[in-house]
């Protein structure tokens, strides 16, 4: 019965891609997960992909015990500031990065294991009025923060033991940067979306702000999730929390837009529409797949290149879905319920 409840519903006429339930974990001491992610962790001589779950005041590390069971390794207790988000750092091991704050991010912390004194620790990376943060390849973390006078966009590089090695400042645009995204296949390029609905492009090696391009008035408050450079164009996966429904493309939670960085002109490439009868979204993008929790309590998955919804996890009797995140590696979706259950699906 449980397996049946968890079987994803494929929508009419779509491809055979689907979600297969691999395993699930439940933290009996925790309710209402804030975020979930994966991290590589060294233990007993081998490197394992572990699951990290965040509640408002604690973050737990889970390691695989058997194909379908998970054991809690450690729980870090945080202070009075609530945990908002786990920030995946794609190629870091034995280290979890989290954002804490109320409405906005006030602190970024590292949670780690120190072999020097055989203990689990936490350390402060940054404080301030942080608007956006993103983990990059090669153990780098980029964040944008704002004071009344100025905006700072900064990249911090970590050592393997989690120490901050050096920082680099990027030229800030005049507009406040609200989201950041890597450009797949271009290590030195970074994009951001701003409060006035522009895309900005940086050269992170030199810190130069290369271009500012307007997204358009039809889709205000766009958020960038991922970018891809191909054939002289910059393809950006955007979500639009405040887009109005239109006859031509419905109510697209995700769009891929092609920008010509030389001319700042753009065209829409694909629109990923919500399944019929669903509204609202909170999304995550990995490679070319997007996932979002809908206001109905379902999770939807899209192929952004096709602009198609490929799977839908309906809310079951066990409760609505509240979280949908892609694992840092492979095609694995982590879906969380209000009661603290996290299900792992292979996509």
């Amino acid at each position: 019965e449980v397996a049946e409840q968890l079987t994803p519903v494929l929508l009419d006429g779509l491809r055979e891609e689907t979600l297969q339930l691999v395993s699930k974990l439940k933290d009996p001491s925790s309710c209402c997960p804030v975020d979930v992610s994966t991290v590589w962790w060294d233990g007993a001589g081998c490197r394992e992909l572990c699951v990290v779950t965040a509640a408002e005041s604690s973050v737990s590390l889970w390691k695989p015990l058997a194909p379908d069971s998970w054991g809690k390794v450690y729980t870090w207790q945080l202070g009075e500031i609530p945990v908002i988000q786990i920030i995946p750092l794609p190629d870091m091991c034995n280290l979890v990065c989290i954002a804490l704050g109320d409405l906005e991010i006030a602190e970024i912390r590292l949670l780690l294991y120190s072999s020097e004194n055989d203990s689990f620790k936490q350390s402060l990376v940054k404080t301030g009025n942080i608007k956006a943060v993103l983990g990059l390849k090669d153990r780098r973390l980029v964040s944008s923060s704002r004071t009344v006078q100025e905006q700072q966009v900064e990249i911090v590089t970590f050592s393997e033991t989690g120490r901050s090695k050096d920082g680099q400042t990027l030229m800030p645009p005049e507009e406040t940067v609200l989201a950041l995204a890597e450009v797949e296949g271009m290590r030195d390029a970074l994009v951001g979306t701003t409060a006035l609905n522009s895309i900005v492009v940086w050269n992170v090696k030199t810190g130069q702000l290369l271009k500012k391009m307007h997204v358009g008035y039809s889709y205000p408050a766009s958020i960038c999730h991922r970018a891809y450079s191909d054939s002289g164009l910059l393809f950006v996966a955007l979500s639009h929390p405040h887009a109005k429904e239109s006859k031509s493309c419905g109510n697209p939670p995700f769009r891929v837009v092609a920008f010509n960085p030389k001319t700042a002109r753009s065209v829409g490439v694909t629109f990923s529409s919500l399944p019929p009868g669903h509204a609202g979204r909170q999304g995550d993008v990995q490679d070319t797949w997007a996932a979002a929790v809908l206001s109905s309590g379902a999770v939807a998955v899209w192929d952004l290149l096709l602009g198609q919804c490929t799977a839908l996890l309906p809310p079951g009797p066990a409760g609505s879905w509240v979280l949908a995140r892609w694992a840092t590696t492979g095609a694995c979706l982590l879906a969380g319920r209000r009661d603290g259950t996290v299900c792992l699906y292979r996509y």
């Binding site: 030229m171 130069q208 030389k262």
Partner: peptide
């Protein structure tokens, strides 16, 4: 996407914009 929509496309846009942008 065509050049009529997007203007002249350059495969080396990143290097060209880096050469043009203020340091």
């Amino acid at each position: 996407c065509s050049e009529s929509d997007l203007g002249p496309i350059s495969l080396n846009w990143f290097e060209e914009l880096s050469a043009e942008a203020p340091p």
